[in-house]
Design a protein around this nucleic acid. Structure first.
Lengths: 413, 413
DNA sequence: AAGCTTTTTTTCGAGCTTCGAAAAAATAAT
DNA sequence: ATTATTTTTTCGAAGCTCGAAAAAAAGCTT
């Protein structure tokens, strides 16, 4: 099971440590890296000169910080040309892809609208392959080797992050996107849940609050969750974790899109809020998709005065509060960022949410639980994908060193 | 944050790896350890001869396995005299302590009845100190150095596992048992939740099913939980995790011992089953403690035929099922062992439990979710404590090597 | 019974890696 | 121009793991 540490693992790990330090800190000097990693000056010097020689790091040109005695520090930065990664995000009716350089800058981006619900399985796969193909051929990538593709999808992935098992955006399940794209392009692929990527992105934004333990909740047509514990993305035992939207809020309660009854989503998803605001029975078949502007109109009405709209948002808050509280009972309270269109109506949700959470074991200090909002999910998901792919390159390719790093083997197709 | 690996860490980690291999495998030969750890023969040979010279390991005397050509393998085992640890378990009206040798054998044990609910704070602390004192002076420990005390308590501990923050067994909270006992005896102490120790024990029993991901649920007066994920004990962000009993089953539902409404415990705890079986209102003040034989009588009646007793167990099953299902939605399904007096009535609980879990997202394959039972919690908790303490000695003391290992510094009192 | 085969364990030198100390480099202050 | 200060590199020492070879300890063969 747990394997011993060999001698050559040492260098690999410490190289990865240096790369992580540079990726996190922006442009640290060798001395700063020494402080971050706890390794000696000599070691950092040796490793960083290797990495520079291999074209992975480079010395910073900017020298704005003067005014101190002594030899000035030279900042190290990631060499943007060292590699590139591709992010692909598949969500309801929308497919977007972006090329990102090794330093994390977006080189090019493309969005395309699809009718995902009605598209046949093979057509959907074809759209994805063509999108990747176009991005790879684009001349923004002329000078870069693409070393990783991160594919985010609303839904669940298998434990090896290779197959999309299930998704609400299409009736087709069990699509092995990793195998498909690797076969087509010979570049290693990872398949991830979109909410997990939101959490990864928040972690890299580097706010103090979002360092070790926090939660990202997507409030959209459905409800999703990404959890970071101890600074690591928490993926249950099958990498499909965070199906928060289907925790049971009320046994035998409202009808959920998933066919079950009483899920959180059946109270707090767009369709649920809409259903309640319009006065429909809570077992009415969920609407397929509700445009953002219609949701915003609903929120405006709720803000204008008491009525079914306001009550609908309160019910959503109550469901979210009890379920978050139940979750907090098990994993302990943590800061939460609400993401997506629902986050724009958080003012309507928050009072009931706080009231409910205060009545749970996890809400013992409910006042001190912090909530943030982030209306746009797309950018956050792309950011998370990019960081996920880039850290893979850091740890699994560039940390190895030697010829593999400078000219990595592509997968045999 | 994450710190680099130094050169001397290497030996420390690999020594720990060897000790872990021996502790898990019983009596592996050097060759078997080579296979387990992935290290070379030379390394294992060097490390194990060091450990033998330091009196931590010894060569096995038993040589039953013959009948193979070639030089026979020599099994390595933990030297029982290398050290000892103490376990202390504090639960409702009961305090028990045991001395355990380095190989894991119980040397001596003592149980004492207390009225924990009414005992003043200082008297409770005094009882604990005296219990430890008696165990340490006992001549079963004459030849052993006691290197660690593990203190398990029903309730929550702080994130550093040093203070008991809250417990249902006494009104007194915030008792820094680790500081208190370390000051008195100069031996490092850890404070842990009892259900977490149950989970640790199951992990060490070594069934295949209880290796990487599983859950232990205590069904007793209260409901507790210990979770193992990826082979590691999962303690939320504050080490007080697993407050499963206070997940909300039904908003504004039955009155819980904790004062809130609708917790799982308010349906599935002993007092809740008793309350429902006796036909009391679900908001009736919870009974203080219900003797085991009375619960068993209740279960007998429920087995005899339909009636309020049977319904009470069904309600317990429903509450447990929905809540487990909700939890599974977030951490994915895992095998569960039910422990304690409630587990003896699992036949009464299971049907409703499976029905409820099948209606949740986590119960998608509810038939394949496996349940086991284990009626006696005390032994399991002690076992977990012992293993927790012993692995601490392995990793934090004996793995260091040098003079520290053979004559470790006790804490300065 | 002596020699041969097989398997486990130890020994030994080579090759890395990290570390500390000292040297070199680069700048501000005097 | 010289000195002080800080960063970075260089260099030798020490430690660890590894592979190959040797040693050890049995069963098997003739």
């Amino acid at each position: 099971m747990t394997v011993g540490i060999r001698h050559d693992d040492l260098r690999r790990r410490n190289r990865a440590m240096v790369l992580a330090a540079v990726r996190r800190s922006g442009e640290p000097s060798r001395t700063e890296i020494t402080a971050i990693t706890g390794l000696s000056h000599s070691t950092i010097s040796a490793i960083s000169s290797d990495l520079i020689a291999e074209g992975i790091l480079r010395e910073g040109r900017s020298e704005p910080t003067a005014s101190k005695r002594g030899r000035p520090q030279v900042g190290l930065q990631l060499d943007p040309c060292a590699a590139a990664v591709l992010t692909v995000v598949l969500s309801l009716n929308l497919l977007t892809a972006a090329a990102v350089d090794y330093a994390g800058k977006v080189l090019a981006e493309e969005t395309c609208r699809l009718d995902t619900l009605s598209l046949p399985r093979e057509a959907l796969i074809k759209e994805c392959i063509e999108m990747v193909s176009r991005r790879l051929d684009d001349n923004s990538l002329a000078k870069h080797r693409v070393l990783r593709i991160a594919f985010a999808v609303q839904g669940t992935a298998d434990s090896h992050a290779r197959t999309m098992l299930w998704t609400p955006i299409t009736p087709h399940g069990d699509i092995p996107f990793a195998d498909i794209l690797e076969a087509a392009f010979g570049i290693p692929v990872i398949v991830e849940n979109d909410c997990n990527m939101m959490a990864v992105a928040l972690r890299w934004r580097g706010t103090d609050r979002y360092r070790d333990d926090f939660i990202a909740v997507l409030l959209s047509h459905g409800i999703g969750m990404g959890i970071v514990l101890n600074g690591e993305l928490f993926i249950g035992t099958q990498s499909s974790g965070g199906e928060f939207g289907h925790m049971i809020h009320h046994p035998n309660g409202a009808l959920c899109r998933c066919g079950r009854h009483g899920c959180v989503e059946a109270y707090a998803g767009n369709y649920a809020i809409w259903r309640n605001a319009r006065g429909f029975d809570e077992n009415t078949e969920p609407a397929a998709d509700i445009p953002d502007d219609e949701m915003q109109a609903l929120a405006e009405k709720a803000r204008a005065g008491a009525g079914p709209e306001r009550q609908a948002y309160e019910r959503a808050g109550t469901a979210l509060g009890y379920s978050l509280g139940s979750l907090f009972a098990v994993i302990d309270p943590a800061p939460v960022t609400f993401v997506g269109i629902g986050a724009t109506a958080f003012d309507l949700i928050e009072p009931a949410l706080r009231r409910a959470i205060a009545e749970t074991a996890g809400g013992q200090h409910s006042d001190s639980i912090v909530f943030d909002t982030e209306p746009k999910e797309q950018m956050l998901i792309r950011e998370g994908c990019a960081m996920r792919a880039l850290t893979f390159v850091d740890q699994e390719i560039f940390a190895l060193g030697g010829p593999t790093a400078s000219a990595p083997q592509l997968l045999e197709a």
